[in-house]
């Protein structure tokens, strides 16, 4: 981080309206994801107990645990994006002087935004026709099964827009995190 980037912008001076709601929403989803992890852990332990002590298999628990496993990944991803915590290789950007670095950072946000757009288009195309197909054991319909990932990319798009805006207005991505509760 160069000193030039830290100039005179107070953390919230550049917040667009609703930015704090983004931070709060991302945090709430992470809390939901944390609860799902707890549930998943209980389901797996219950299966071990059920099979070894009660001599019964629980196919529904296996399917529900897998659903939790998928959901928690997507529900936590927006928060990681807001904090800039997704694994990246920033070797080249970190060698650039401040202005080109800022431009590259804006480009990266544009990439995230584009991918979110593709995903949302994909959900629209897929769920428009496949919403009613259901999982084999519990019969969870696709629209529920895919809901966490849809929410993920909706929020990811909003967060990315916000991060771009912060960069364009001359702020740093560290300041973008200030909207977190």
């Amino acid at each position: 981080m160069s000193v030039g980037e830290e100039r005179f912008v107070s953390p919230h001076a550049i917040d667009p309206p609703g930015a704090r709601a983004l931070g709060a929403l991302a945090t709430v989803l992470r809390i939901v994801a944390t609860c799902l992890l707890a549930l998943m852990t209980c389901l797996i332990i219950a299966q071990v107990v059920g099979r070894n002590l009660l001599n019964s298999g629980m196919p529904w628990a296996d399917e529900l645990a897998r659903f939790c496993g998928v959901a928690l990944v997507f529900l936590c991803a927006p928060l990681l994006a807001l904090r800039g915590q997704h694994v990246a290789v920033d070797m080249i950007p970190s060698m650039l002087p401040p202005t080109p670095r800022r431009i590259v950072a804006i480009l990266v946000e544009a990439m995230v935004l584009t991918l979110s757009g593709f995903f949302l288009w994909g959900f629209y195309a897929f769920l428009g026709r496949a919403w009613k197909f259901a999982t084999p054991t519990l019969g969870i319909p696709n629209w529920i099964y895919y809901a966490p990932s849809v929410i993920c990319f909706l929020l990811l798009a909003a967060i990315t827009l916000y991060r771009m805006l912060v960069l364009v207005r001359g702020g740093t991505l560290n300041q973008a995190e200030a909207v977190l509760p």
Binding site: R51, N55, G57, P59, D62, E63, P136, T137
Partner: peptide, 8 residues
């Protein structure tokens, strides 16, 4: 305990 395909 017998392994079963997870269809009803």
């Amino acid at each position: 305990k017998i392994r079963a395909v997870p269809f009803p």
